[in-house]
Design a protein around this nucleic acid. Structure first.
Lengths: 204, 204
DNA sequence: CACGTTCTGATGCGCTTGCATCGTATCCTG
DNA sequence: CAGGATACGATGCAAGCGCATCAGAACGTG
């Protein structure tokens, strides 16, 4: 047999390079040569990992989708120590909104893919799937909160998940566009959640 | 004198062509040649109207920003027949969210520019300004509603404007990403506004 | 009607792009 | 250690890019 190479690892490295380039100078600045340089490999290596440029971009999107989903899921899995459902909800959403400085890159990339989706059927499919997963995740948390009596039963989990996810995404966009700071966005998010629980419980 | 040309009109035509191209196949598919073809003029004409490609993109963004702002402002100006502030608010936001099929193109373009903003200082500035204007607009409507006693005084106009605008943007993203339909998004938006007014007034 | 000015569309240039090719270096197997 | 399969990276290639150039068409003016 010939020599073995850690393809999966390299694919990830390349995906990271793609994301870095997109975050820094937009999607149309991504060329195979620049990606190779950024990833510290030769152009040939990039071509061996991905048959075409579109394959590469698709992998990068799946890579970052996975990354975001995983972080949110970990947040839930780590709830071995009993945690109030409301805290769980707000923390998860705050993470999904990609507000902290570390996530800014991912937010850029995510948005770039959303903007580019109409041009690629496959990209759109990945985005759709990811959104569906995130929606289910939020709805699950809300139901969990209702089970533990933290959230009022009057809430419709699906509708509220819908609403919260849209709010989180909107805040992400606003922060990226420089319309306001991550801190302000976080406050707005928290305020809405508080408002939601408080009013709904008062209604009973 | 030599012959006269309606430059402003042509610039708009070219801007429309840019937007059509962006909406159809993304920002990186915009080339001077394609724009010229789409606008039905020669490449030379495009180059006479805009010194560089970036100038052209900038103008297209300003063009579409103006378009969106104008529509929202018209909505207010047309309120000669007395209109409930809540209706005004929801209609304005629905328009800003670019949910109807006609606005889908504009939504694509807007998002493409947001995604591309980090790569261009000037684009970012235009986006920032536009968002500030829209924020003020929504806050104004809320204050107006408070003056006409339609909205409770307990609402903080700036905070709620912040929240509503983010929600509208998030819904725009979700519709574009195919996560749900314009109709659903509209319902979610309306539900939040109702919820807001209802709960706030109950609090008194 | 002829002049002078402005506008036009085609062409050229230098460069970059995505992708294909190919000799060489590298590693596992028998 | 020899052999063969694989990965590598440099190079080539056609196409497309943004932008500059320029001869001629188109027009208002004297």
């Amino acid at each position: 047999m010939p020599r073995q190479v850690d393809y999966e690892g390299r694919r990830r490295r390349i995906a990271d390079a793609v994301c870095a380039l997109i975050a820094h100078s937009g999607m149309e600045a991504v060329s195979l040569r620049d990606v190779a340089t950024q990833a510290g490999v030769s152009m040939g290596a990039v071509q061996r990992c991905f048959r075409t440029k579109e394959d590469m971009l698709l992998f990068a999107l799946e890579h970052i989708s996975q990354h975001v989903s995983d972080r949110a899921n970990q947040r839930i899995a780590a709830t071995s120590t009993p945690q109030a459902a409301s805290t769980l909800l707000s923390h998860t959403l705050a993470e999904l909104a990609l507000l902290d400085e570390t996530s800014k890159t991912q937010a850029h990339v995510w948005l770039a893919f959303v903007a580019h989706a109409p041009a690629s059927e496959k990209l759109a499919a990945v985005l759709h799937d990811t959104y569906a997963k995130l929606h289910d995740l939020i709805a699950w948390i809300i139901r969990y909160g209702q089970d533990t009596q933290d959230f009022p039963r009057t809430l419709d989990p699906d509708r509220e998940a819908h609403m919260l996810l849209a709010l989180a995404d909107g805040l992400t966009v606003h922060v990226l566009a420089g319309h306001h700071s991550p801190a302000t966005a976080l406050t707005t998010l928290q305020r809405h959640i508080d408002h939601l629980l408080e009013d709904a419980s008062r209604r009973c």
